[in-house]
Design a protein around this nucleic acid. Structure first.
Length: 588
DNA sequence: CAGCGCTACCACACCCC
DNA sequence: GGTGTGGTAGCG
């Protein structure tokens, strides 16, 4: 007994000694002593890499992070499809992912947060055995052409197959594609709205499928296809005769009239949607486009990832025509990776947010943040629509309720990349640029959840031309995320050098030392976002995520045309800014 | 110790003709 | 027989 205890004690002492030795090594030779993500390449990893068992814990942690972090889901393996939730930045994920395809990161999914602005994306699939002769690539081409046409029709967006990233994950059994639209200066309000949009434009096909269901009475069925002018030779032989009657066509027109008040004149252009319909695995008709992927917090498989239990990765398809712009010091592969991320959408003044309410409500709207493009059919949303943060909404309403004017929130949009809430204000038009209210243009208030600040921007063309952005004001602490979300860190996992996930105490990733609250909050002043990858960034994007944020902001205000990283700002400018802003207790 | 968000489907209760 | 509700298996 005593001997065993003695052995245990010695083992424990050895282990403690090893850890202490390792810790002193890291202290002497820190891994990230000169980390300057905007300057040095190859860059070094930041410290944000945390795994959680529960999605909610991952989101709560991410919301308290100062970096551009995102939540990803990892499938463990084929036997155990249990999922973990990883919080990290795009850049850091790529850094490890790129090297560890065959480890824990091989089954990795982007979590598309509910309410987050995102790109138009598609999951396409059909079983090859039940669809003999179906030409998947040709069907994809027709689909893209159709979607581009509808984007033009509904939102005035111009795009072509060259703006669509085609990813292929097909097997001998199943044709499987992902499409990610890279629209210029436009994105959808959230993935629910994408679903609404697609259900609207695919409605004839959806109803046609339902009509094959004996439970649906035939007279309720509406469809399109008055003229079937398109080549259907790529269709599976079983679908060649799926042409719908003229009565159905009229029905669709009626129905469509209710859906889109202004579009009745265009109905004659409706193409044959039978290209959308395929045979299911066990018979029955289904859509080529999976409409089940537009739900809250949807997991969408990453470029180069495979499903657990199936070795087929999502790779650039042979027929892909999208080529990302090359960016200095980054590989084309990384650019493809960033393009494939559905939520990698950066806020800017000219970004058009596309939205679509669900079919029952039958309202269509498209709003441009710069106000320069006309809004389509719908009425503006009346009153105050609440965002996921009612406390912040209340604060915004209090900001725009002054001088006997009761302003309101016309609409809000959430950018998960930078954690920005962009509020379009109604009724209240006071602009800090001109020192009075605009006559006809509305203002917006941007809440930066990471920097815990808010500022005003403007829809007015003159203010826009100046790229006006007001001073930054601190958010009251009781509406900041750390206050609203108390993070749960009971279970923290890290990945070892081989990319394997191990359960660990709550440790600092680079040093292996226990992580203190201060480390957490400081985030080591590191920026690993795609900031340095995008030449056309809005000024708001450059100088953030640091302890010195206010100072950096002050410098930006003084020198709006320079874009410095926090640690690049010349000392004299910092001092100027200090004087101007009377910022205390800032370490230069 | 440990996934999440649906939808389709089923059983059952209640109501009306 | 029609309609509403609540629970859940199983899909994506």
């Amino acid at each position: 007994m005593l001997i065993a205890l003695g052995q245990r004690k010695r083992k424990w002492e050895e282990r403690t000694k090893d850890i202490e030795e390792l810790a002193s090594q890291y202290q002497q030779k820190p891994l990230c002593s000169h980390y300057r993500p905007l300057l040095s390449k190859p860059w070094q990893p930041s410290s944000i890499w945390k795994l959680f068992h529960r999605q909610i814990q991952a989101f709560n942690f991410a919301k308290n992070c100062k970096e551009d972090v995102h939540v990803f889901a990892l499938e463990k393996n084929a036997e155990n499809k249990q999922r973990f939730y990883l919080v990290t930045t795009y850049t850091e994920l790529w850094f490890y992912y790129n090297k560890h395809y065959e480890t824990s990161l091989m089954h990795c999914y982007e979590v598309i947060p509910e309410n987050a602005v995102c790109k138009l994306y598609f999951d396409l699939e059909f079983y090859i055995s039940t669809n003999p002769g179906a030409d998947g690539q040709q069907m994809v081409a027709v689909l893209i052409e159709f979607i581009c046409k509808k984007l033009k029709q509904y939102y005035g967006m111009k795009c072509s197959s060259e703006d669509v990233l085609n990813l292929d994950s097909s097997t001998e059994e199943k044709f499987s594609y992902h499409l990610i639209f890279q629209l210029h200066n436009a994105a959808f309000k959230n993935n629910i709205d994408i679903g609404n949009f697609l259900r609207t434009i695919f409605q004839p096909a959806i109803l046609l499928i339902k009509s094959k269901d004996p439970l649906v009475p035939e007279e309720k069925v509406v469809s399109t296809v008055s003229q079937s002018y398109e080549d259907t030779s790529y269709l599976p032989s079983c679908l060649e005769n799926q042409i719908v009657t003229k009565d159905m066509s009229q029905s669709w027109q009626l129905n469509s009239h209710r859906i889109q008040e202004k579009e009745t004149s265009q109905q004659t252009e409706n193409p044959n949607l039978s290209f959308l319909i395929v045979n299911g695995k066990h018979g029955g008709k289904q859509l080529f486009v999976d409409l089940g992927v537009y739900t809250k917090n949807r997991n969408f498989r990453l470029y180069k990832s495979s499903k657990a239990g199936n070795g087929v990765i999502l790779d650039i398809a042979k027929d892909n025509k999208f080529v990302p712009e090359t960016v200095k010091n980054t590989s084309i592969e990384e650019q493809y990776f960033l393009s494939s991320l559905v939520c990698n959408v950066r806020f800017s003044n000219c970004l058009k947010i596309l939205s679509c309410d669900n079919l029952e409500k039958t309202k269509e709207k498209s709003v441009c943040l710069d106000g320069s493009l006309s809004r389509s059919s719908s009425v503006p949303i009346g009153g105050c629509q609440s965002s996921p943060y009612p406390e912040i909404d209340n604060f915004i309403v209090s900001l725009v309720s002054k001088d006997n004017i009761q302003g309101g929130i016309r609409q809000w949009n959430y950018f998960s990349l930078e954690e920005l809430l962009v509020y379009d204000i109604s009724k209240y038009r006071w602009c800090r640029n001109i020192g009075r209210a605009h006559r006809s243009n509305n203002i917006m208030i941007i809440v930066d959840l990471k920097r815990e600040i808010w500022y005003q921007k403007c829809h007015d063309p003159v203010c826009r031309a100046e790229n006006f952005k007001s001073e930054c004001f601190p958010l009251p602490s009781n509406i900041c995320l750390p206050f609203l979300f108390k993070e749960d860190e009971d279970y923290v996992y890290i990945m070892d050098g081989n990319g394997n996930i191990e359960e660990k105490a709550n440790m600092h990733k680079s040093t292996g030392l226990p992580l203190t609250a201060k480390h957490e909050k400081m985030g080591q002043n590191q920026r690993t976002s795609s900031v340095e990858l995008d030449d056309e960034l809005d000024d708001i994007c450059f100088l953030e995520a640091s302890e010195d944020v206010e100072l950096a902001d002050a410098v930006t205000n003084l020198h709006p045309h320079k874009n410095w990283a926090v640690d690049e700002i010349p000392d004299e400018l910092l001092i100027d800014a200090l004087k101007k802003q009377e910022v205390d207790e800032v370490q230069v």
